[in-house]
C-alpha cells in the first residue's frame, strides 16, 4: 500500500483529490483559496493600522493559516515517507529546452542549482526568488485569487471573472517562459 501510493500520482487521481479538498474545506466552513493567507499575514503583522485593506479580523481567517501549516507538514511527510526516490518523469522536449538555457535537469521536483540560498548572491536569484515572489503576492491580490481560488473554486462555480483571471495567469506564464526566460537565463 505504502509502496503503491509512494509512486507519483496520475493526473486522474490527483485532480479529483484536489476537488475533494475544495469540498472538505467548504464542508469545514472555509473555502479553497490559498493566496488569502498572504493578506492574513499582512493583517496579523499590524498592517491594518495604516492600511484599510488589511483592517479586518484576521482571527476569522486563522483556519486558512492552519490549512497551510498542514500543507507544509503534508509536503514534509510526502518527501520523507511517501518517496519512491525515482527521478521525475519529465518529457524529453522540456529537458532539451531547459538544457539549451543552461539548466540541467536533476530529477528533483525543482532544480536544486536554482532553488538554494547561494543563488541569492546572483542577480538571477533576486529575479526568480524576490521578484517572482513579489509578483505572486501582488498579482494574486489584485486578481482576487490564485490557482485555487480562481482556476478551481471560481471556474467550478462558472464565474466569468475567474475565466478572465485564468487567461491572465496563462498570458503571464507564457510571456515569461517564451520571451523573458531567454533574457534571464
Amino acid at each position: 500500500m505504502i509502496d503503491y501510493i509512494s509512486q507519483p500520482w496520475a493526473w486522474y487521481v490527483s485532480g479529483p483529490v484536489i476537488a475533494l479538498i475544495m469540498l472538505l474545506l467548504l464542508w469545514a466552513g472555509g473555502e479553497f483559496g490559498v493566496s488569502s493567507t498572504l493578506r492574513t499575514f499582512c493583517s496579523m503583522s499590524g498592517a491594518g493600522r495604516k492600511i484599510k485593506f488589511f483592517d479586518f479580523d484576521w482571527r476569522s481567517q486563522l483556519w486558512n493559516v492552519i490549512f497551510v501549516i498542514g500543507a507544509v507538514i503534508g509536503g514534509f511527510f510526502s518527501v520523507n515517507y511517501l518517496n519512491d526516490a525515482q527521478p521525475l518523469a519529465l518529457s524529453q522536449a522540456t529537458i532539451d529546452d531547459l538544457n539549451q538555457m543552461g539548466i540541467q535537469f536533476d530529477g528533483h521536483l525543482a532544480p536544486e542549482e536554482i532553488f538554494n540560498w547561494e543563488i541569492m548572491g546572483t542577480p538571477t536569484g533576486w529575479i526568480i526568488i524576490v521578484l517572482g515572489g513579489f509578483l505572486i503576492g501582488f498579482g494574486t491580490r489584485w486578481a482576487g485569487g490564485c490557482t485555487s481560488g480562481h482556476a478551481i473554486s471560481g471556474l467550478s462555480n462558472l464565474q466569468l471573472p475567474s475565466l478572465i483571471a485564468v487567461i491572465g495567469f496563462f498570458a503571464g506564464g507564457l510571456l515569461m517562459t517564451h520571451f523573458l526566460f531567454p533574457l534571464i537565463f
Partner: peptide, 26 residues
C-alpha cells in the same frame, strides 16, 4: 483586475514554478 492582476501572477508563477499553495508545500 482579473486580467492585469492575473497576468502579473502568471509571470511570477512561471518564474518560481509555484502558485501560493505549492509555496508552502515546497
Amino acid at each position: 483586475r482579473y486580467f492585469f492582476g492575473g497576468t502579473l501572477f502568471g509571470l511570477g508563477w512561471a518564474l518560481t514554478g509555484a502558485c501560493p499553495g505549492p509555496l508552502y508545500v515546497l
